[in-house]
Design a protein around this nucleic acid. Structure first.
Lengths: 189, 189
DNA sequence: TCGATTTGCCTAAAGGTATTAGGCATATGC
DNA sequence: GCATATGCCTAATACCTTTAGGCAAATCGA
């Protein structure tokens, strides 16, 4: 019988698509095998276990998201860069909810070190170059931005902002205005 | 043989404790049955299914958290109230990680309506009473605060801020300072 | 090009979780 | 004290995960 041509990479990509369709925590080795028309045990030649599949999807999503941020940031500065950065995050989460959820997977220190996490942090610092912040304020600001973006996207996707006016797009714009104002006027300790 | 005295409430509380010990998504009907020294099927007289258990834990946690916020806000205003509110969230998440994760469970509109979600929103508005914000800015600010608190706690617990100086307590204080400054000086559209 | 070896996918099997159906014993109410 | 309702149990089905061992297809060396 012909071989299916499985590889960890193909499984990871298919897993990412599956995550977007059914949710990251519904991603299952069995379903993936079904999609490749292959028996479940066959996947274990390419993946140590179910956890490794999830980790790979997470690392894949982190890279993909970092690539998009990098592209969006090119040639922008100040509030323009801030908004571009923020919109990439939000759009990615809406377009790929499963992959976005995957980026929140808790990684081991080694996995985290090998991930695109560092690029995300660097790019956040790049955005802050348009504002006048020294250390340690810059680090505080990096963490604040990460919190706002992740928190907003997470609550919005979870339906936390539903059923109430004004619409979330309006709030999103005003939040970006507010963050820009805050960064231009960062309070002294 | 003696009866175990199961009720949906006891199962919910035990489920919340289990969540704190092993993580919300590791909460299982089987493990719960084991803890009550009872057969798994017995739980299905009290719970429709595994999903209902999770929903009940989520509703329980939302109530518990709302109660703590209410207690903390009593007699406070302005930045004092802001910090108290924020600290309750953060402390709750640290003390009860599983329950905190449960509060992020996506609820149906009916479940959400019957939950303490409304109290949370009301209390956030109460905090904003100390600042001079009309509508729709107040709603934008409510969403911003929710995003920052949830995002920060979520990233901090997920290890997103690890391995780097300055420590997260310092950042937390400075973030609260920044939010206070921002709310006192909310930018016009 | 043929034989040896590696590699890829399969069958088989064990163990865990979720869920339903049906039974017996223990409480509860008249 | 008896009838009923209720609580927990046994049994069975259906997934999902993971490991062990086997056969055939691809690959490599001569």
């Amino acid at each position: 019988m012909a071989r299916a041509g499985l590889t960890a990479e193909r499984l990871t990509r298919a897993g990412a698509e599956l995550a977007d369709e059914v949710g990251f925590d519904q991603v299952t080795v069995s379903e993936l095998a079904r999609r490749f028309d292959v028996k479940v045990a066959s996947l274990y030649s390419h993946l140590r276990n179910s956890q490794e599949l999830k980790t790979r999807i997470a690392l894949f999503a982190l890279e993909e998201l970092a690539d998009r941020v990098a592209a969006a940031l090119a040639g922008r500065a100040g509030k323009d860069a801030l908004a571009a950065f923020a919109n990439v995050y939000r759009d990615y989460a809406r377009e790929h909810p499963g992959r976005y959820a995957a980026t929140q997977l808790r990684l081991t220190p080694e996995e985290a070190a090998a991930s695109a996490g560092g690029r995300h942090a660097q790019m956040t610092r790049a955005v802050l170059r348009g504002y006048d912040l020294g250390e340690p304020d810059q680090t505080h600001a990096v963490r604040l931005l990460g919190s706002v973006f992740h928190g907003y996207v997470s609550l919005e996707m979870g339906g936390g902002f539903s059923h109430s006016a004004p619409d979330t797009q309006e709030t999103w714009s005003r939040v970006l205005d507010a963050l820009d104002a805050l960064l231009r006027n960062w309070p002294a300790p």
